[in-house]
Design a binder for these strands. Structure first.
Length: 485
RNA sequence: GGCCCCGUCGUCUAGCGGCCUAGGACUCUGGCUUCUCAAGCCAGCUACGAGGGUUCGAAUCCCUUCGGGGCUACCA
């Protein structure tokens, strides 16, 4: 009988969640959903100097926004909580004490300076740096002496001789010789637990079956397995590991959270859709196959398997993300597009949100849906429909002050005044008849002048539709104003 | 330095011994369409890091080498 899958995403929010974090979260989530298992969300905040409440809340918010819903964790609860490690300190302390009692762990009185000196010597001697086992077998007298000195002590796990082999779902069997896995610290001198202790204890206690995480944690796996052993966990109850390849930056360096472009919050502000971000990120290190790329979240959960995840790192490519975002925007229904656009429009002060404004937005959106790749372009493209103090873009003014343009504008006013039923078909008809047919102008020339005068820019939604939405009065007003420039 | 991981077009990938004179997507270039910008359509450029094996046959298996990355904390 196979156990029900439980996958966890356990970030340490020392900043806004970034691209790499989210790719991991996405795979965790997709795998849980694919298998019909449980998705557990846990916050690893044992490093209190770097993790803040603000970042924790931001992480929760980001995950929700992306649609990566969790079954156990902050806000939703569960049977294995609490899900913030800072609230589980007593649990870790108990286990650490147990390890001490079992002699699996011991107190180490070495000072940071002493440890550094040892490492320095090791580097010089060209041997593997790491803890040298100095305090492994201290006598009672030695311990008493250290205590008398007032030294603090950390709790260190004893790494036995031998080696650890585990099967990584993505990389196959991986073996680490314990000669290169020194005794590691479980508890700081101040009594607080370290990641190595907390993850292992939590993954077991929370009954996690699959640990899918970044490959930077690959070499810490033998340490976790050591903790499982000390906990007395049976082999078949160890979680299965899968180390996901990195998402790298353009320069082949690991994407770092110091860079603004990696923060998911930034992508949200720019107007990327969560589904586009997830779709793109899913393609980094994984592929649905069959030349398929544009997939829905539902398809992702149906097709995703860890076995198909690559072992090699992937470069993050903004252009491709943009292309996918454009595809996703074009696939939106009008109501969806409206829902996503409104916040951008109000935030940019293009509209305040009245019913009349929303009605007009609704008419205008279809005109720009295939012309944008990010939602933050919506206000830019629709501003001309709502602005109270209209002005032609500075760089476009000179393009309509020549005699040719004046003639076009003059003739347009004359023709447009005659249009009684103001719609784009009629507008186009009179303008083509007069400007193109009679004046024999090139459409490009004639309509560019009108475009600048009515929308203020050389780039706009389709001209005649734009004029229709603007209304006859406003159009004529603006063209007249353009004539006066 | 040591340990570990990785190596197909510029980028993401398909490929799991013959379907590969290596397919798709993004980017880029050219063209068509066209009221701008897009979108759409067509065409083109460009890859199995290198060297050895194994085999009738290798991108696919093995070895070496080179290159990239991670870890080497009282960070995660």
């Amino acid at each position: 009988m196979t156990k029900k899958v439980k996958v966890r995403f356990a970030p340490s929010p020392t900043g806004d969640l970034h691209v790499g974090n989210i790719r991991t979260a996405l795979f965790d989530w997709a795998y849980a959903r694919h298998t019909g298992g449980t998705f557990l969300f846990r916050i690893e905040d044992t490093d209190t100097t770097r993790v803040t409440d603000e970042y924790i809340n931001a992480a929760i918010d980001t995950l929700k926004w992306l649609g990566l819903d969790w079954d156990e964790g902050p806000e939703v609860g569960g049977d294995n909580g609490p899900y913030l490690q800072s609230q589980r300190l007593d649990i870790y302390a108990q286990w650490a004490q147990k390890f001490l009692d079992q002699k699996d762990a011991y107190h180490c009185y070495c000072s940071p300076d002493e440890l550094e000196a040892v490492r320095e010597a090791q580097r010089k001697a060209n041997v593997a740096p790491g803890y040298n086992g100095h305090c492994r077998d201290l006598t009672d007298a030695q311990i008493a002496a250290y205590k008398a000195e007032g030294r603090g002590a950390v709790v260190r796990m004893r790494m036995p001789d031998g080696n650890t082999t585990f099967t990584d779902l993505i990389r196959g069997d991986v073996t680490f010789d314990h000669n290169f896995v020194p005794d590691f610290v479980l508890v700081r001198a101040d009594g607080s637990p370290l990641y190595t202790l907390a993850v292992a204890v939590d993954d077991i206690l929370m009954k996690v079956t699959h640990v899918l995480r970044g490959e930077d944690l690959l070499s810490s796996t033998p340490r976790q397995i050591r903790v499982y052993q000390a906990m007395g966990v049976k082999l078949e109850d160890y979680p299965v590991f899968a180390h996901l390849p990195f998402v790298m930056g353009q320069d082949n360096a690991k994407l770092s959270k110091r860079n603004g472009e990696v923060s998911i919050a930034w992508y949200r502000e720019m107007g990327f859709l969560p589904e586009a971000i997830c779709n793109y990120l899913a393609l980094l290190g994984w592929s649905p196959g069959d030349d398929l790329e544009n997939i829905t979240m539902k398809q992702l959960t149906e097709m995703f398997t860890v076995e198909k995840v690559h072992s090699s790192p992937a470069r993050f490519d903004m252009k491709k993300l943009e292309a996918i975002n454009g595809d996703k925007i074009r696939a939106l229904t009008l109501d969806e597009f409206l829902k996503w656009s409104l916040p951008f429009l109000t935030k940019a002060d293009v509209i305040t949100g009245t019913d009349a404004e929303i009605e007009l937005v609704k008419k205008a959106l279809p005109l720009i849906q295939e012309r944008i790749i990010m939602l933050n372009e919506v206000p830019k493209m629709l501003k001309f429909l709502f602005t109270k103090n209209f002005a032609v873009d500075a760089e476009s003014v000179s393009k309509i002050t020549d005699d040719g343009s004046k003639a076009i504008l003059q003739r347009s006013i004359k023709e447009l005044e005659t249009v009684s039923d103001w719609n784009h078909t009629n507008i186009e008809a009179v303008l083509r008849a007069s400007l193109i047919e009679e004046m024999a102008l090139k459409p490009r020339i004639a309509f560019t002048a009108l475009r600048i005068a009515t929308t203020g820019s050389t780039i706009s939604p389709p001209l005649f539709e734009s004029m229709e939405l603007l209304g006859k009065e406003a159009c004529l007003l603006r063209i007249n104003a353009g004539l006066a420039l």
